[in-house]
């Protein structure tokens, strides 16, 4: 007897639930998204007319959408840069063999459990221009009271800070795991060869961590593009004057507030292209420049 069970129909039956769910709730809507993106909605969505690629042309010519694109990429870039750098430094610290190391690790990664919406709510209070603790601290130390809510640049910065903070725990988990897998003898060898601590990190440890780095880069980009919706919605609703209107928020507004479903569907496809590119780049680059322990 082999390790496989007999039967041709049985496995299909087992896979049926998976296929019903992904068919109805993923592939069919995906097909519909493509379809919808070729139509324009009139009269608040009451009528649809076929317009071909007009929605896509609008995507590339609309200054408002282009701004949202730039804004989203700067947002993602800043979130990725800061959350990965800060969490990497914290992970190095937490990886030191000191007493209470376990406590420190737990105390650094717990914000992972927070949702973007809850993080948004807490940070909105902290940044509140009149009762927020941040402005109290800023005023009593350097004498300024910035208006984080109605100033465009400051509101954008506020959302970036909240998004970075919320992502730290997640990144630290992966950096810590990767640091703990760095073979001690390689680092030791570099030490004996006269590499100082900085050189050991820059020349030996960071290259060893590149698989994790690429993985986190992808996950952080996806987080910044998609999962920060709750954060933006709670903190600014995309405002003031579109200052925090990221691609996902713009899509939500066009689809569900302005009933521009066709245009929103084209935006969905745009997001899909972004995800696909990010994932393919990760697969290609992530496989080439990284170090594998088994090799």
């Amino acid at each position: 007897m082999g390790t496989k069970f007999p039967g041709k129909l049985y496995p299909l039956l087992l896979l049926l639930p998976t296929f019903v769910v992904i068919g109805l709730f993923i592939y069919y809507p995906m097909y519909q998204t493509i379809n919808m993106s070729l139509y324009k909605s009139l009269f608040m969505g009451l009528r649809q007319i076929y317009v071909g690629i007009e929605n896509y042309i609008e995507l590339f010519t609309s200054p408002a959408y282009r701004q949202s694109l730039v804004r989203s990429f700067s947002f993602a870039g800043l979130v990725v840069l800061f959350s990965m750098t800060i969490s990497f430094l914290m992970a190095i610290l937490a990886n030191q063999k000191v007493r209470f190391a376990r406590f420190y690790r737990t105390a650094l990664i717990w914000p992972y459990a927070l949702s973007p919406a809850v993080a948004g709510s807490i940070f909105l209070f902290i940044f509140n221009p009149s009762v927020g603790v941040l402005n109290y601290l800023l005023e009593s130390t350097i004498g300024i009271r910035p208006d984080w809510i109605s100033n465009s640049t400051l509101a954008f910065a506020m959302v970036v800070i909240a998004a970075v903070w919320k992502q730290l725990g997640y990144n630290i988990v992966f950096f810590l795991a990767a640091l703990q897998n760095v073979p001690g003898d390689i680092v030791e060898a570099a030490h004996i060869d006269g590499a100082n601590a900085f050189q050991r990190y820059w020349k030996v440890i960071i290259p060893l961590l590149s698989p994790t780095g690429f993985f986190l880069l992808t996950m952080n980009l996806i987080y910044a593009f998609f999962d920060t919706f709750g954060l933006v919605d709670v903190m600014t609703r995309g405002g003031p004057v579109d200052a925090t209107n990221t691609l996902i928020y713009n899509l939500y507004r066009d689809a569900f507030q302005y009933s521009r479903t066709g245009f929103a569907a084209a935006q969905s496809i745009m997001l899909f292209v972004i995800v696909t590119v990010v994932m393919i780049v990760q697969l290609k680059l992530g496989n080439r420049t990284v170090y594998y322990q088994n090799e």
Binding site: L15, T18, I22, L24, F25, I26, Y27, Y28, P29, M30, Q32, T33, N35, M36, I222, F226, F229, I248, L251, Y252, A255, F256, T261, A264, A265, S268, I269, L271, F272, V275, T276, M279
Partner: peptide, 23 residues
């Protein structure tokens, strides 16, 4: 079949949210 299942990783809910909501 396995590939079709894995491919859904490329399609987060926001990408299909407009027709999914309508559906």
């Amino acid at each position: 079949v396995f590939f079709i299942i894995l491919l859904t990783l490329m399609i987060p809910i926001p990408v299909i949210i407009v027709p999914l909501f309508r559906f």
